Amino acid sequence: MKYLAASALLFQATVLAGPIIEARQRQDFAVFTGVSSFRGQGCEGATVTYDEINQVATVIYPNYGVVIPQGPREESCSTTLQVRFPVGECTSGTAIGRATGTVNVPVGVTAFFSTRDYAIQPTIGTITDVSPNGQWTGPRSEDYVLQDNIGYTLTPPNAQNSLVNFTVFGDLSLQPQNGPVGSLSNRQFVFDIRTQIPC
């Protein structure tokens, strides 16, 4: 009887400990801190939301676009999202950035989504980013998706530099700027850091 009672208590303790262990494991992942910043005329009115585990950030740009013959003909926006990495632990993964928008240009006009690249500070560890620029020559009228894949291995040695800023630079323009008509917008940017493992 004593053996059965002890077994029951041990089972209950194991069941209760399950969520605690799982919660501790989840804290070992990199997450968005909720701190973000924007710079550039195309960033006006931008907002950021996060998923329930703070590993997917969705940025909405209501005013990031260029239009001819009435302006603006060129706009830029730098978006910085802060990520907190586990203190003193090595984390490796692939962050995915996905920009979506609309391009509408006639014959003779070209739309550019250029200078799209990442700055990661502090650069602790190794980082390999792929940031394709966008170029569309008319006639084109479509929604577009541009995807980045950023491989990283980061080892923050202390609490101060466990905070890493991912800044994406982007510039929209239409050429020639005196063309008959045309538009290019960037509506949304999604940054996904769910793919990560200890290293």
Rank of each mutant, 00 (worst) to 15 (best):
V15W: 04
I20T: 07
Q27T: 14
S36G: 08
R26P: 01
V35N: 15
G18Q: 09
A13P: 00
G40Q: 03
Q41H: 12
R26E: 14
G40F: 01
F38C: 01
G18P: 01
A13C: 06
P19C: 06
C43R: 00
A13Y: 04
Q27E: 14
T14M: 10
R24D: 14
A17L: 09
C43S: 05
Q12I: 15
A23V: 04
Q12Y: 12
T14V: 12
F32D: 07
S36H: 15
V35K: 15
E22T: 10
Q25C: 05
R24W: 13
G34R: 02
G42A: 03
Q25M: 13
Q25I: 12
A30N: 04
P19G: 07
A23P: 06
F29W: 07
I21N: 06
V15H: 01
Q27C: 07
S37K: 07
Q27M: 05
R24M: 13
R39W: 11
A30W: 03
E22V: 12
A13T: 08
I20E: 04
F38M: 01
F29C: 06
E22I: 11
G18F: 13
F29S: 05
G40V: 03
F11D: 06
T33D: 02
I21A: 11
V31M: 06
Q12T: 15
A13N: 08
L16A: 13
I21D: 04
V15P: 00
F29V: 07
V35D: 15
R39C: 13
G34I: 00
V35Y: 09
A30F: 01
E22H: 09
G18H: 10
